[in-house]
Simulated assay, not measured.
Amino acid sequence: MEDNLLETFWAVSRKLREHTRITLEPWHVSPSQSRAVMVLSKHGEMRLSALAEHLRIAPRSATEVIDDLQGRGLVERRPDPSDRRATLVVLTDQGAGISQAIREARATEGERLFAGLDPADRAELSRILRELRDSR
């Protein structure tokens, strides 16, 4: 029996997660750590609470992710100059380098994944996914 749309979507989602896990192996980072690195790379230094919002996770979970990344030398915590009680998180040079490497590896993997689609289908899929992403 042919899969329905939702089942097909979930199958593709699982495939993407597996490809992401494999893509991240050389840097020994989890998908959640990778997402945090990418957010910091895109937005620069930020408070843990802001990072948690970007990642859509609990602040406690963001703290655990940052603790792991800090232990590996990929991020550092700095005092917030505008609020002595707050702390900012920022990528280190090593973290920025890994961010760039991950970005390049994910782009290559994405090209491989979507290579079987002709340009018109890719454009249409991109349009549909953006529409789903932006809908409420």
Rank of each mutant, 00 (worst) to 15 (best):
R136M: 08
G97H: 06
L125A: 12
A105Y: 07
D80V: 04
E18Q: 10
L74W: 00
T63V: 05
A107P: 02
A107G: 11
L51D: 04
R133I: 09
A105N: 03
E124D: 09
R127A: 12
E2M: 12
R85D: 12
V12I: 15
S99L: 01
L125Q: 08
G110D: 09
R112D: 13
A107I: 09
I98S: 06
D80Q: 03
S135N: 12
L88E: 10
D80H: 02
R112I: 07
E53A: 05
G97F: 01
S126P: 03
Q94E: 15
L51I: 01
M1L: 14
H28A: 11
K15C: 09
D83Q: 06
S41A: 08
G116Y: 10
L117D: 10
P26W: 14
A52V: 02
M38S: 09
E104D: 15
D68I: 04
G73K: 02
A105G: 04
R84D: 15
V75H: 01
L16M: 09
L125Y: 12
E64Q: 07
A50G: 09
S41I: 02
A86T: 06
E111N: 11
A96E: 15
L91A: 01
G116V: 00
R35D: 15
V90E: 14
F114M: 08
S82H: 11
Q94A: 12
F9Y: 15
T23P: 02
R77Q: 14
T23Q: 03
D134G: 10
P119V: 15
W10S: 12
D118G: 02
H28C: 05
D93Y: 11
Q100A: 12
D80E: 09
R21T: 12
P81S: 03
V29T: 02
E7H: 03
E131V: 08
A62H: 04
H19R: 13
G97Q: 07
T63F: 03
P79L: 00
R56H: 14
E104N: 07
M38P: 00
R106N: 10
L132G: 07
R133K: 12
G95L: 04
I57R: 05
D134A: 11
M38A: 10
N4H: 10
V12Y: 15
L69K: 00
A11T: 11
G110T: 13
I66D: 07
D80S: 04
V12E: 13
L117I: 06
L125P: 06
E124S: 03
A123K: 13
W27H: 08
L55M: 15
